[in-house]
Write a protein that binds this DNA or RNA. Sequence first.
DNA 1: ATGAAAGCGCTAACAC
DNA 2: GTGTTAGCGCTTTCAT
Lengths: 324, 324
Amino acid sequence: MSNIREIAKRAGVGIATVSRYINSTGYVSEEVKLKIQKEIDELGYTPNALARAIFTKNSMTLGLMIPNITNPFFNQMATIIEEHANRYGYTLFLCNTQDSRKKEIEYLGILKSHRVAGIIASRTMCKEEYVNINIPVVSFENHISSDIPTISSNNYNGGRMAFGHLYDGGCRNMLHIKGPRTFEATEMRYKGFVDAAKEKKLSVDVVEFESDFQVKMLEGNLNDIKNIEHYDGIFVFNDIAAAIVMKYLKERDIKIPQDIQIIGFDNSFICELLHPSLTTVQQPIEEIGVLVVESIIDLINNEELIIKDYLVETRLIQRNSTLL
Amino acid sequence: MSNIREIAKRAGVGIATVSRYINSTGYVSEEVKLKIQKEIDELGYTPNALARAIFTKNSMTLGLMIPNITNPFFNQMATIIEEHANRYGYTLFLCNTQDSRKKEIEYLGILKSHRVAGIIASRTMCKEEYVNINIPVVSFENHISSDIPTISSNNYNGGRMAFGHLYDGGCRNMLHIKGPRTFEATEMRYKGFVDAAKEKKLSVDVVEFESDFQVKMLEGNLNDIKNIEHYDGIFVFNDIAAAIVMKYLKERDIKIPQDIQIIGFDNSFICELLHPSLTTVQQPIEEIGVLVVESIIDLINNEELIIKDYLVETRLIQRNSTLL
DNA sequence: ATGAAAGCGCTAACAC
DNA sequence: GTGTTAGCGCTTTCAT
């Protein structure tokens, strides 16, 4: 691949002139511009972003640390973040951690070595490792440290709304299927749900699932719930798990929502695909994604963030898996 | 961020020694090793991969050009590719093109400037742009040019199997819902299905959907199909679209599979979530992903590829949306 | 308006 | 065994 020196030589000018032309930084005569562009086209020259980054100290890359790109919540988030980062000229390194602390630490080293301008983290297994890294970090879904800006849905309130909706729909014997205890987001949903129940002096049953997204695992957990047909309302920690619960109930000829009402979380595309369609609590993915990118850009540009801890509101989306 | 010179100075050695130590290339005494490591730890030094890449001419990065990370087929593929590339020490740039030619061309420029070692493309909107790029390219899902190695499922045979399965299940009045005509993969599925029908002297109806994955759009297309209840078997070009068709039928009280049998394509996680579970044609995602990565690595290492055009076999997964 | 030269952080050939 | 030095491709200061 050709370099700036070659372009300069062939165009009969100095390399500084070529650099100025490419970056539109400083005057270059129209005549010289044409000569340079001609050589660039002929050689198919593209400036080396690596060399440029060494000098400018900005690689124009970001690390996107995500547990599982297969999960609709995270891949929708990735889509928004990618689109928005791209608009600012940044390109993303995809770091799929599989919720593995080891892989996350490995990627942290890689991102550091590639001198990414910033890191967008989510549901991380590390704390310490992020604070002394000397690279701007923004987190969504969970809190890493008080120094690191965090944007998350109001999961607690989402849990409360889920309860309210089932309660108003007449449910008095509810079950909550909660996510793994290591996930901050699902933990908050659980708390909101239980707190709201307490206020109504209602006790609810709770079962914990071990995985957020592996169908086989979720099905295994389901079989452990005894007398599921005794409940009249179930709040499940995400839509995928809710879909599996729905299937489980349908296979046992339990009618949704007549016998059991069910409500999920996320408002992923699957809600519309199910029959009956799934009532759920919507996470404002677009809003979070945009805030994440804008925060990291501000941090990179050394601008002070006014708000360090965003809590974006969730919203109940009523569909056909609940009455009311 | 500190550099190799600073480490060398503080450890009281030359920079070449530090370089040798870091890269385990050449002898360094145990005593010096300790001194160097101490400074590395103290300063939190990480070698600059950008500077290294300029010299070694290998950035250890790959570009992953994907139309839509939200689509289960592509995000599963991304997961496999990421995992496998990582094993070889490569990190991925995520390029989500949204099937936009403009965005793809933009990303091609970015990848080139970042001097990626190779590009993994899929369902691309460009041809020319890939052949003269002077970077190794491997494609899956569709063919770019005869020079570019391609790995794809045997979509044609998948279409044939789908027909055979419905036919053997007793269907004689079938509909195929095909994908957008710009997608090579769905075009092949369509051809396979129609060819197999012809061999049985059966005519089948075909309707084309305009999108592969946008629920609203797919639903719009569905309303254009008149008398859908007259069919006894439907082969849909992917699982998501099939799920939407299923929902549409269920809302009209058409029983699956008793009234209409239905079969999808991909074997994505959604098949197991539906009720009845969806019979489908499985794409060997893992196998394709591994081949893709190994091919690009071989190309990067200047090894000749023995096979330039892999066709990996698909498999019918029987579930409850079809009889037989 | 343009070019020479220094320097970004690194590797490797070549001295010693 | 280890250090000096040139050079990778770039940007930018400072002459001219």
